[in-house]
Simulated scan of single mutants.
Amino acid sequence: MRRVLITGASKGIGRAVADRLADAGHQPIGLARTAPPDFPGPFYPVDLADRAATAAALEQIVTDGAVDAVVNNAGFARFGTIGEIDLDDLYSTYDLNVRAAVQVVQAVLQGMRAAGWGRIVIVSSLTTLGTPERTPYAAAKAALETCTRIWAKELASTGITVNAVAPGPTETEMYRERSPVGSEREGRLLQNIPMGRVGAPREIAHAICSLLDEDAGYITGQIVRVDGGGSVSG
Score class of each variant (00 low, 15 high):
residue 27 Q to D: 10
residue 88 D to M: 04
residue 195 M to S: 09
residue 14 G to D: 14
residue 202 R to T: 15
residue 107 A to Q: 03
residue 139 A to C: 12
residue 204 I to R: 09
residue 127 T to A: 07
residue 202 R to M: 08
residue 178 R to G: 05
residue 175 Y to D: 07
residue 35 A to K: 15
residue 172 T to N: 04
residue 163 N to V: 10
residue 86 D to Y: 03
residue 85 I to M: 07
residue 65 G to W: 02
residue 185 R to H: 12
residue 158 T to L: 14
residue 71 V to A: 10
residue 129 L to P: 03
residue 89 D to T: 10
residue 51 R to V: 15
residue 24 A to V: 07
residue 157 S to C: 05
residue 20 R to A: 03
residue 148 T to D: 12
residue 91 Y to K: 11
residue 77 A to W: 03
residue 96 L to I: 14
residue 150 I to T: 14
residue 100 A to S: 15
residue 233 S to P: 01
residue 63 T to R: 14
residue 24 A to D: 15
residue 163 N to P: 01
residue 125 S to W: 11
residue 23 D to E: 13
residue 175 Y to K: 03
residue 23 D to Y: 03
residue 158 T to W: 08
residue 228 G to H: 00
residue 56 A to W: 05
residue 21 L to T: 03
residue 75 G to C: 02
residue 161 T to L: 09
residue 9 A to L: 09
residue 30 G to S: 11
residue 14 G to Q: 06
residue 139 A to V: 15
residue 84 E to N: 07
residue 46 V to S: 13
residue 152 A to C: 03
residue 150 I to Y: 13
residue 59 E to I: 06
residue 169 P to C: 01
residue 193 I to E: 04
residue 233 S to C: 01
residue 162 V to Y: 04
residue 109 L to N: 05
residue 67 V to D: 12
residue 121 V to K: 06
residue 113 R to G: 06
residue 47 D to R: 10
residue 89 D to E: 08
residue 72 N to D: 11
residue 233 S to N: 01
residue 44 Y to N: 12
residue 186 E to M: 03
residue 39 F to Q: 06
residue 221 G to K: 04
residue 178 R to E: 10
residue 102 V to I: 14
residue 234 G to E: 01
residue 174 M to H: 06
residue 115 A to D: 14
residue 74 A to R: 01
residue 118 G to I: 11
residue 222 Q to A: 08
residue 218 Y to Q: 06
residue 105 V to P: 05
residue 214 E to W: 02
residue 19 D to R: 13
residue 196 G to V: 00
residue 149 R to P: 04
residue 164 A to R: 08
residue 50 D to G: 08
residue 87 L to T: 13
residue 172 T to S: 06
residue 68 D to H: 14
residue 21 L to C: 03
residue 220 T to E: 05
residue 116 G to E: 03
residue 93 T to Q: 00
residue 58 L to V: 08
residue 84 E to F: 04
residue 85 I to N: 13
residue 50 D to T: 12
residue 80 G to S: 00
residue 28 P to E: 12
residue 84 E to H: 08
residue 23 D to K: 14
residue 75 G to T: 11
residue 91 Y to R: 15
residue 55 A to D: 15
residue 107 A to D: 14
residue 155 L to I: 10
residue 130 G to M: 09
residue 209 C to S: 13
residue 211 L to M: 05
residue 42 P to L: 06
residue 41 G to N: 11
residue 189 L to T: 01
residue 76 F to R: 12
residue 189 L to W: 00
residue 46 V to Q: 13
residue 232 V to G: 02
residue 213 D to H: 13
residue 60 Q to M: 10
residue 143 A to F: 04
residue 69 A to T: 08
residue 122 I to Q: 15
residue 111 G to N: 06
residue 38 D to C: 10
residue 80 G to Y: 03
residue 38 D to G: 09
residue 216 A to E: 04
residue 144 L to E: 15
residue 120 I to A: 01
residue 219 I to Q: 02
residue 130 G to F: 02
residue 119 R to Q: 07
residue 135 T to H: 09
residue 37 P to R: 08
residue 40 P to W: 06
residue 149 R to Y: 08
residue 71 V to L: 11
residue 19 D to I: 05
residue 191 Q to A: 07
residue 194 P to N: 01
residue 136 P to H: 02
residue 109 L to Q: 13
residue 193 I to D: 04
residue 55 A to W: 11
residue 56 A to S: 14
